[in-house]
């Protein structure tokens, strides 16, 4: 490529052309079938954060003791998205619900470190480890009642 082509005036936009690119699914952990795993897939930003929150709240209502949030299919997450994860963390703590995250190495992990959330959230590299941690929390909670 022979160098930057100078000045390029680009796009003007109008209207509601854009669909939000995020789905939030739910499944049970394969090794711990009572543990609900929430799986957001796509991009989490100001436009889609509300959808993430809805998916998290739905899972929280169906996961009385323990929840795993699997972030491996999230291609992009920003401060708004991190804020929703913080909200989930807070709601789970208030409800006595164990919570852990599956986080791939790379940019998401870096953002969690930059925001200090790596020392607040329970982070794991895979589902089995996250579900095991949540399951252990859950059985501690029930034996202490």
């Amino acid at each position: 490529m022979g160098g930057w082509p100078g000045n390029v005036q680009v796009i003007s936009g109008a209207g509601s052309l854009m669909r939000v690119q995020l789905t939030v699914d739910q499944r049970f952990a394969s090794a711990f079938p009572q543990i609900v795993v929430v799986v957001p897939a796509g991009e989490v930003d100001l436009a889609s954060a509300g959808q993430l929150r809805q998916g998290l709240e739905r899972a929280e209502s169906q996961a009385p003791a323990g929840l795993v949030v699997d972030l491996r299919d999230v291609g992009f997450i920003d401060s708004t998205g991190i804020g929703e994860l913080v909200g989930c963390h807070r709601r789970c703590r208030e409800a006595g619900r164990a919570l852990a995250f599956v986080v791939p190495t790379g940019t998401i992990s870096k953002i969690l470190k930059v925001t200090g959330m790596d020392s607040v959230f329970d982070l794991h590299p895979d589902e089995d480890s996250a579900a095991a941690a949540v399951s252990a929390d859950k059985s501690e909670a029930s034996t202490s009642e």
Binding site: G3, W4, N7, V8, V10, I11, G13, M18, L46, A47
Partner: peptide
């Protein structure tokens, strides 16, 4: 070669367009 130049993008002030 050294690169220089400007691209200007104007989007509606709506969150869906940040992706652009």
């Amino acid at each position: 070669s050294s690169a220089s130049g400007r691209v200007t993008i104007e989007i509606p002030a709506q969150a869906e367009y940040i992706a652009v």
